[in-house]
Design a protein around this nucleic acid. Structure first.
Length: 344
DNA sequence: CATGCGTGGGA
DNA sequence: TTCCCAAGCAT
């Protein structure tokens, strides 16, 4: 049986029951695909439900405030996805008359939508023959055809996309694209793939050559940078100060306590040299966590300390009542602090 | 085009 | 503990 047919047959009997598969409404499929970028289904599922409940249509999403969209995205990470989702919803409503684009070529123009996502939506919703190439597809194809071209090299990206596109030619694109991804995540897994019960085992070159565990090949490891962040938690008992992160780094447009960054773990002595704290008596500045909390991002390790500053002088501009603080979208780290601080 | 962007789960 | 990595994209 041909490669595509085997996968389609497997999918028929093994596909997972997922909420976004109940409809081919491109808005719902788009939502699910953005949420699932670099994210496990288990992690994204509740967010999908939140978004479809809060924003049942693309117009509801377009009419929302970005702060609200980010609040609903809080905790999921890669927050540019939420910002781009919101941006694109407005684009669809304002420029496309509220009609979701129907071809790969038009769909990929949406911010936050690249080759993979455009292929997924175009095939799943409009049955266009555009092959998806995600992490699962890289793994399945590199193993089945025993290809050791690094999947994150420009050569590899081109090679696998072309191969995937050849394999979909005679397939039912909607079924086949989802089949190869489900198959990759359930059978041809990164670790301990289930080769014993694999319907593709006969033709699998990596299996024959005992290469399964070394494929796919990925080159370049990321370099992790250490940062030392000190969050200043001003409080008069009722209010505190929050500021919105701007610029291009992590957590863009989320909220945090005023931040002082150093090249190493800071002491109170160094802290009070900063303009933000120079007028405060050292006795009013207390370190909340004597042992720095290490928050690990994919590219950075953040060594973080929270300093509580008791003061009656809370500026009106960025003041927030403690009782309202949960209305703000904050990074996981800040949320962890709030949890810990409240229960103290 | 190499790098930056979150978080959580599993080995 | 540490490492990998999970339905990628923007710049």
């Amino acid at each position: 049986m041909e490669f595509y047919k085997t996968l389609e047959m497997w999918y028929l009997n093994n596909k997972r029951d997922l909420p976004w598969r109940k409809s081919s409404n491109p808005y719902f499929v788009w939502l699910s695909e953005i949420i699932l970028q670099q994210t496990r289904i288990q992690q994204g599922l509740s967010y999908y439900n939140t978004f479809t409940n809060h924003y049942p249509t693309v117009l509801d999403l377009a009419n929302a405030k970005e702060d609200n969209v980010l609040k609903n995205w809080q905790g999921l990470g890669y927050y540019s996805r939420a910002r781009n989702l919101h941006f694109s919803a407005k684009y669809i409503c304002n420029e496309l008359d509220g009609k979701f684009p129907t071809t790969y070529k038009e769909i990929i123009k949406l911010k936050g939508v690249g080759d993979y996502t455009a292929s997924a939506i175009a095939s799943i919703c409009f049955n266009e023959k555009t092959a998806v190439v995600d992490g699962n597809v890289y793994r399945v194809l590199s193993r089945y055809f025993n290809i050791d071209i690094p999947i994150n090299s420009s050569k590899g990206i081109k090679y696998f996309k072309e191969l995937a596109q050849e394999l979909i030619i005679n397939a039912n694109p909607k079924e086949y694209n989802q089949a190869i991804m489900d198959f990759g995540s359930m059978v041809c897994k990164p670790q301990n793939p289930n080769c014993e019960n694999c319907p593709l085992e006969n033709g699998c070159l990596a299996k024959a050559k005992n290469m399964i565990s070394s494929l796919p090949v990925k080159e370049k490891k990321i370099k992790i940078k250490n940062r030392y962040l000190n969050f200043i938690v001003f409080t008069n008992g009722e209010q505190t100060i929050l500021e919105k992160r701007t610029g291009s780094g992590i957590w863009q447009n989320l909220y945090q306590f005023p931040l002082l960054e150093f090249d190493e773990i800071a002491t109170q002595k160094e802290l009070i040299k900063k303009p933000l704290l120079k007028d405060y008596n050292t006795s009013t500045i207390k370190l909340f966590n004597p042992e720095p909390w290490v928050h690990k991002l994919s590219h950075q390790h953040l060594f973080t300390q929270f300093w509580i500053v008791d003061t009656q002088n809370i500026s009106q501009t960025n003041s927030v009542h403690w009782e309202n603080i949960d209305n703000f979208a904050v990074p996981k780290l800040i949320h962890k602090f709030l949890d810990s601080y409240k229960t103290k």
